[in-house]
Design a protein around this nucleic acid. Structure first.
Lengths: 177, 177
DNA sequence: AAGGTTCTGGACCATTTGGTCCAGAATAGG
DNA sequence: CCTATTCTGGACCAAATGGTCCAGAACCTT
């Protein structure tokens, strides 16, 4: 999965894949069928994990606004800590494959829908509790946050410096006041 | 250029390239040297065009806030009008190649720096004129807008519906109040 | 029409691509 | 210990990859 994640679909060869998975060619085709299906499996697994993480965060019951901040800041902290900036698999797919591959596109759409939904729930709660301003519609704010998150993912991959990303996060958050 | 733009680097074969450019193989290698250099040429040309466009907009002297809105909304209007959603070449590069290709990365960085700079100038003017609130730092707002733009580019490529993108644009803009 | 220059089509190259297949090694169960 | 099952390494495949090279067509200029 990590190979696809950091190199993208087209740039990942079967050799790369087999090396990374420590699997024989025969077993690979036995399990996955072909390269494309293996990629789909990786994408689905990634999306599920990511959704589960945000879901757990939402359900934790912490301050909504603070949880959102953590979610955004997570994008900044991760890439610097790891070897290479692989970003978000779904964003990578959206850019590399979604326009030409309907199967991938629907997986991307599904992931984004679920993320938007979780943000929406979080925001609605924050508005009820008073931590987030009710002057703006919760649905709109959810979409806005999802967009900001995707933007950050791109900026981080592009290698923008930490200060710039910090500025972005804090400016995004002011929309919640 | 359009082929690279819509298919990405790795997924574009020499055959695709030659067909699209209507050029013989020999002439291609005469002009560009190799595939990678051809891509760099396309990227540089794209970035220059894009910067020139925003620059012209900034220099037009119109209402800063309105010009920003047009710039953001441009991302939404384009993809639906054209055949396929190719998005922004620089964003595509940032995602597909920047982390593994220093030459591409610096081109991406340069483009983003220039865009940020133009946004900064536009915002500073808007603040001086009063159309944009001065409660936030112009540099931060510029980075914030660049981020929002990248996000929109991803969302559009992912095939999010028009209403969602509209919501995002208008919510982004409220940060200028 | 002759000459020189520019461009082209395609032959050709080694390498790599995703994918199939099977003999045999390793493992597990009795 | 012997059989079943699972897994592996590698041979093999046709097709496509990026790239080189050159004979000749097409184009100017004189």
């Amino acid at each position: 999965m990590h190979v696809f994640w950091s190199k993208g679909y087209a740039a990942t060869s079967m050799t790369d894949l087999l090396d990374a998975m420590g699997l024989s060619k025969s077993s690979f085709y036995e399990f996955f069928g072909n390269k494309h299906d293996a990629f789909m499996a990786a994408l689905r697994r990634y999306a599920d994990r990511e959704v589960a993480r945000l879901d757990a965060s939402v359900c934790s019951g912490g301050c909504a606004r603070r949880l959102i901040e953590i979610q955004l800041r997570g994008v900044i902290d991760r890439p610097t800590g790891e070897g290479d900036r692989r970003g978000c698999l779904t964003v990578n797919c959206a850019v590399e494959l979604a326009p030409h591959d309907p199967v991938i596109e629907s997986a991307v759409t599904a992931h984004m829908d679920r993320m938007e939904e979780l943000f929406h729930r979080l925001i609605a709660r924050g508005q009820a509790e008073g931590g987030i301003s009710s002057r703006q519609d919760a649905r709109m704010l959810a979409r806005y946050l999802l967009n900001g998150l995707c933007g950050l993912q791109v900026m981080a991959k592009a290698g923008r410096d930490a200060k710039s990303l910090e500025d972005v996060v804090s400016t995004i958050l002011t929309a919640l006041d």
